[in-house]
Every structure is written in C-alpha cells, then in structure tokens.
Design a protein around this nucleic acid. Structure first.
Lengths: 149, 149
DNA sequence: TTCCTTCCTGCGACAGTTCGCAAGAGGGCG
DNA sequence: CGCCCTCTTGCGAACTGTCGCAGGAAGGAA
C-alpha cells in the first residue's frame, strides 16, 4: 500500500508541487476503495476535510489529472457513463466492463506486459500500460444470451 | 478497401438502417485518411455534401456511434483532447501516441489477440479488442531525451 | 405503388469536462 | 526568515458530448 510519503514522492517525481487539493483528493481516494465519480469525491472531501469543502470542481479534475500523471490514479471511462476515478498506488490493474450488465471487474492481465514489449521491439515505442478498460460480455451474461437466443 | 456496398452491408448486419446521414459521415471519413474531430467532419460534409450541410451535431455523433458499432470506424480518445474518429473498414488497428511530440502512429499489435484470449481463458470474459491507444514515448523523442539529459 | 410500423433525425436543453484569467500558495535561495 | 519566481487554485464561461421529444424517413407487406 502506498503511504502518504509515497504519494508525495510520486507527485514530486512528476515535476509537480505537493499541494493541499492534491493531498486531499489522494486521501479521499485512498480512504474509499473502488471507482468514484467526481461528485462522490467532492462529498467525501466535504465530510473528511471541512477546510477543503469548497474545493472547486475544476480543481478536483485538475488534481485527478495530476495524480493520474503520477501513476497513482486511473480514470475509468466506461461506456457513456460519467468518468470514475480509482486509487491504484503503484500497482497497475485493468478493468473488464460488461456491456450487458455494467459490471466492472478488476483483474491482472499478463498480456499488458506483452503489449509493452511488442510496442518497444517492433516500433521502438516506450510505453507503460498502467490501465486497460476492455468492454465486452461477462461469463454470466454470455450464458443468459445463449439461453435467450 | 471497403466499397460503399460493404459499408451498407456492415450497417445492415448491425441491425441498423442505411440512411443519408450515415452514408454521408462514412463518405466523409473514407475520403479523408486519418483521425478527425466532429467539427472537422462537419466541415467536410458541408463542402462535399451541400444537401446535408445543416446536419445536426448530435446526428453526426449518432452516425459515428452506428458506424463504430458496425466496426467501420474507431473512436480515438487521446488524453484530454476532443474525441477523434477514423475510418478502418474491416481491419482493426491500434495507435501509439507520443506524449512528447504528439505524433500518432498506426500499427498492428499481435498482443491485442493475446489480451482477448487471456480475458476469455482466465476470466470468462468475451471481448474484441478493436482499438488500443497506447501513450508513451516514440523512438526519436526517447533519443532526444537521453541527449538532453 | 401505397400503407404501416419502427427506427432515425433535428432541435433544443442539459450534464460533464475543460479553459482563461487573476489572485494565491509552494519552495529554492540569499 | 523573507523574497521572488513559477506553478496552482478558484471562479466563471465555454465547449464537448448526450438525451428526450415530435416529426420524418426506411423498408417490409399487401
């Protein structure tokens, strides 16, 4: 698990300043597992950090952008829904999003590393695949579909 | 290269109707290689199809959604930028986006299929990875960086 | 060809997200 | 400790993308 110091260091290493809004947003995400909307985050912040209760929505977005750039947060854009944000610390993970039932499962995907190697070897492109969101059909829904025809 | 008939057939096979707006949007994308914003597409349409010049923005979006569902178009959501759309016919392809110079290269990635197999085998999740956008650093920019320190 | 059902489009309004600007905070240096 | 430069924030406006509704078009059936 990332500590507050880890968070600060990751932010600094991205060439960014450690500021109150960023710390508050990071704290709110770390305290609540799962993927949350910006509105939900504002709610968490208003409750847990009264001094930052009036934080502007645009500042929440910008703090999230900074944390995403530092590799601490992933943005999950599932279908049409509002973007959600999730704390990942320094471990990457991926999402399988069922287009039928909307369920999101978090998984490790070894093929992500394969992807990185292929991009480097065949195209000289350096990349770090921190987060993939794959849309499709989950096992239970695939079963339903076959039964329903 | 997909023909107009191919386009129509792909649309029909998705259970959708062949309509003027869809044909116009498909034509505009096929006539202009590369990935374009909705605004640019409206410009192409105004010039090449005066009869559809007044096409509503929401209709462009909906036509693109239909074409994407038919597997003829990919939506490229790169970072913060406005979504761009690109014609692919029936071939899938992927993008490597350099965060330094902004260059986008279009490549085949065999690991995309590996990803599909892993999702299915390990998680029972059926997916078709039509398009991946990987952000990172291209070869030339990585060289620049090393030289610059 | 004509009718009929269903799907699609245009329009307007709305929600989510980004941007520009001026004031304020971070943090290196003396 | 205090100064100064630069990066950030807050605010509000603008923009991107989505939705609901009513009229219109696609395409199968007779």
């Amino acid at each position: 698990m990332a500590t507050l110091t880890d968070t600060d260091r990751a932010i600094r290493e991205s060439g960014l300043r450690r500021t109150v809004p960023r710390a508050v947003v990071a704290g709110a995400l770390r305290a609540h597992a799962g993927h949350h909307t910006v509105g939900a985050l504002q709610g968490f912040i208003a409750r847990a950090y009264p001094e930052a209760a009036g934080m502007a929505r645009s500042s929440v977005y910008r703090a999230l952008e900074a944390l995403e750039g530092a590799g601490l947060v992933v943005a999950v854009r599932a279908g049409q829904e509002e973007t959600r944000f999730e704390w990942i610390g320094d471990r990457g993970h991926h999402h399988l999003i069922c287009e039928d039932c909307g369920h999101v499962s978090e998984v490790e995907l070894a093929a992500a590393a394969t992807l990185e190697r292929e991009a480097k070897r065949d195209h000289g492109f350096s990349t770090r695949v921190r987060h993939l969101a794959l849309r499709g059909t989950c096992g239970p829904c695939a079963g339903e579909r076959r039964r329903a025809g």
